[in-house]
Simulated scan of single mutants.
Amino acid sequence: MAATLQFDLVSPERKLASVQATEVQIPGADGDMTAMEGHAPTITTLRPGILKSVSAEGTRSYVVTGGFAEISATGVSVLAERAVPLDEMTPALMDQLIADASEATAVASDKDAADKAMADLVALRAAVHG
C-alpha cells in the first residue's frame, strides 16, 4: 500500500475534500509541485489552475483561482480563494471566475501579478472548455 498524507481543501463556500491521498498536484505561484508523504514543510501561494489529489477513490481535480497551500510531511491543507470540482465546472461558471478576476485586476496594487493571474485564468478556460 502506498504511503498517504491527509489532504484537505476548503474555500469560503465549502469544504471540498478531506481524504488520505498518495499525492497532491498543486499549481503553485512559482511552478507546479507534487506533494507526497514525507514532503519538506512548505507554504506556497496558488496561481489559477488545476489542483489534483490522487487517493484510493481515484483522482479528483479542482479548478482553483488562488489561495495558499501548507504542506508538511503528513498532510496538505489548501485554502483556496475559489475552488470548484472540475466535474462541476461549466462555461458560465468559468466566465464568472474570469469576470471576478478582471474586477480584482482593476484594483490590484501589483499589476504584473494581477495580469499574470488573469492570463492564467484565460488559459485555464481554454484548457477546460476548449
Rank of each mutant, 00 (worst) to 15 (best):
Q20K: 12
V24Y: 05
L51M: 06
S72E: 08
V63K: 02
K15I: 04
A40E: 13
T105F: 11
Q25V: 11
F7A: 07
A56K: 08
A127H: 09
I98A: 06
S55D: 10
A104T: 04
I98W: 03
D115V: 13
G28P: 03
D8V: 10
D95G: 06
T105N: 15
D32M: 13
Y62E: 01
D95Q: 13
F68A: 10
L51R: 03
L124E: 02
A123G: 13
V122M: 14
M36V: 14
Y62P: 01
L5C: 11
S53D: 09
V76G: 00
A40N: 12
G31I: 06
G38F: 02
M89Y: 00
D87H: 04
L51C: 02
I71P: 00
V10P: 03
Q25S: 14
E70P: 03
K15F: 06
Y62V: 04
A119P: 10
G58I: 11
S102D: 12
M89L: 14
S61V: 08
P27I: 00
M94E: 03
A92N: 04
A40R: 13
K52V: 06
A92V: 03
T22Q: 12
F7N: 03
A35P: 00
A101Y: 01
I43C: 07
I50E: 14
T34F: 02
A117Q: 06
A29K: 12
T65R: 11
D115K: 15
A21R: 09
P85S: 01
A3H: 14
V64T: 10
F68K: 14
E57P: 05
L124Y: 00
A119F: 07
E37D: 11
K52S: 13
P91L: 08
M118W: 07
A119M: 10
D112C: 00
I26A: 01
T45G: 12
I98H: 05
V54G: 01
M1V: 13
